[in-house]
């Protein structure tokens, strides 16, 4: 049962990942990417990593993809298509992909995986305590670093959005 579902998700991920990079319509590519990310979250659900799956859905599905779609809506018209990549770029990209894939496959195939015996799903309070603990296995430092990063991004966004008004103050010529 789980095996079947895993293969369904795997096939979905591979097919739509390829479709995503090969689509010439940008919003379609984004939607294919969304399907890939959702399928990945399906994989997490399958192994009972519910919290991670929900995070995957919220952050990637609800956050990142919506923002990408939003920027696409702002700049792209429905009829616009992406340019066809030159052959040279294609070859280089293909070579890089093959290289990356072979390294990954090699790593996966040679690593001695342990079969997990623990089917108990992780409780949320455990995750919460881990996130805010500074002991061993604690994530307080990355948590704070990401907070600072996000804060910087927000400030940057505000500065960019207010660009016009700042320009007036500095006396730049504006239309």
């Amino acid at each position: 049962m789980e095996r079947i579902l895993f293969y369904i998700f795997a096939v979905l991920i591979v097919i739509f990942a390829v479709a995503s990079v090969s689509s010439r319509k940008i919003l379609r590519a984004v939607i294919y990417l969304l399907i890939v990310l959702t399928a990945v979250s399906g994989l997490y659900f399958l192994i009972d990593y519910n919290f991670l799956a929900a995070i995957q859905l919220t952050v990637y599905g609800g956050g990142v993809i919506v923002l990408i779609i939003f920027s696409v809506l702002l700049v792209h018209h429905v009829e616009l298509e992406l340019e066809i990549t030159p052959l040279k770029t294609k070859i280089i990209a293909a070579a890089l992909v093959v290289a990356g894939l072979s390294i990954t496959l090699w790593a996966i195939l040679t690593y001695p995986f342990n079969t997990a015996n623990n089917y108990k799903s992780i409780e949320v309070d455990v995750i919460g305590e881990k996130l805010l603990s500074y002991g061993e296995g604690g994530f307080i430092l990355p948590f704070e670093v990401i907070s600072v990063l996000l804060f910087a991004i927000m400030v940057g966004a505000i500065v960019i959005a207010k660009g016009k008004k700042l320009g007036i103050k500095t006396g730049e010529k504006l239309e």
């Binding site: 969304l34 519910n50 919290f51 929900a54 995070i55 859905l57 919220t58 599905g61 609800g62 949320v124």
Partner: peptide
């Protein structure tokens, strides 16, 4: 076990 969070996650996709 993360029911409420799952709801938020799914509803955030609906807008797409």
């Amino acid at each position: 076990n993360i029911g409420v969070f799952f709801l938020i996650a799914v509803s955030s996709i609906g807008v797409i």
